[in-house]
Structure formats: structure tokens, C-alpha cells
Design a protein around this nucleic acid. Structure first.
Length: 122
DNA sequence: CTCGTGACGGGGG
DNA sequence: TCCCCCGCCACGA
């Protein structure tokens, strides 16, 4: 089971993903930045590759453009987008969603209050 | 041990 | 605005 003192690289990522509430999303890079210590968007994506067999809401992790990066194989983009739309996330005709609106900020990291962000454009 | 790969990201053309 | 290229790092062959 556990590799003794193995910090379980994958588990770190899943722990954060499980904390993402329905209707919200996080990007690969965002998760990598929070974990730090050698984690990059690239590696987080690698970990998420096997997330479908884990007990995590993998569909809530998308790329920095606001779209789904699945589809190459394993899982179709349409499925992930459909699942997110089912949670209330809206996508435009380009298959992108408004990250400023649906991005989830874990407690203790950066600003959890996205209500202030709107002032920047007002 | 070395080499290539990938559910990414961001800068430049 | 869209497309291409290079950098990042854990993993498997």
C-alpha cells in the first residue's frame, strides 16, 4: 500500500482536487503552484491522467485557457465539458469558460474573495 | 543510468 | 487573435 515514507506524489494532487466544490474549477498550473516543490503544470497533468480511477472530481481540473485538455485519448473533451456544464459551469462557443468567475481558490492560498476582483474592471 | 513523453503554460511572431 | 516553440519534471522502457 503505502511506500513507507513516500509522500505519495499523486495523493497531494488528489487532495486538492477533492476540495474543489461543484461548479468550480482549478487549472493544472494553479495546483502546481500551490504544491510548489517541483510540481509543474506538466506533472500535475501527468498525475491527473490516472485520476479517473481514483475517487476525485477530475473534471474540475482544466487548462489555463479555461478549456478542457482531455480528448487526446482516455477521455473525450466533450465529456468533461458536459460534466462541468452539468455542474453549472458555462462554456462559450470556443469551448472556454470564464476562469475569473469559476476558478476556485483553496482557503489559505491567495485571495479567497473573488468579489473584490470585480472592482478592477469597474 | 539515459532517453523520450505528456489531461501544461506563457512568450513571441 | 491564433499558432508555434521551448521550458518543466516525474515516469516508464
Amino acid at each position: 500500500m503505502r511506500q513507507a515514507d513516500q509522500p505519495s506524489y499523486r495523493e497531494r494532487v488528489f487532495e486538492i482536487v477533492r476540495d474543489i466544490p461543484s461548479g468550480r474549477v482549478m487549472t493544472y498550473g494553479q495546483i502546481a503552484e500551490i504544491l510548489g516543490e517541483g510540481y509543474t503544470a506538466r506533472t500535475v497533468g501527468y498525475v491527473m491522467h490516472g485520476a479517473d480511477s481514483e475517487n476525485v472530481p477530475w473534471q474540475r481540473v482544466i487548462n489555463a485557457k479555461g478549456g478542457c485538455s482531455t480528448g487526446r485519448f482516455t477521455l473525450p473533451v466533450d465529456l468533461q465539458q458536459k460534466m462541468l456544464e452539468d455542474e453549472g459551469v458555462e462554456f462559450n462557443e470556443k469551448g472556454l469558460c470564464d476562469l475569473e468567475r469559476v476558478r476556485w481558490h483553496p482557503e489559505g492560498f491567495g485571495e479567497a474573495d473573488d468579489s473584490k476582483r470585480k472592482i478592477l474592471f469597474d
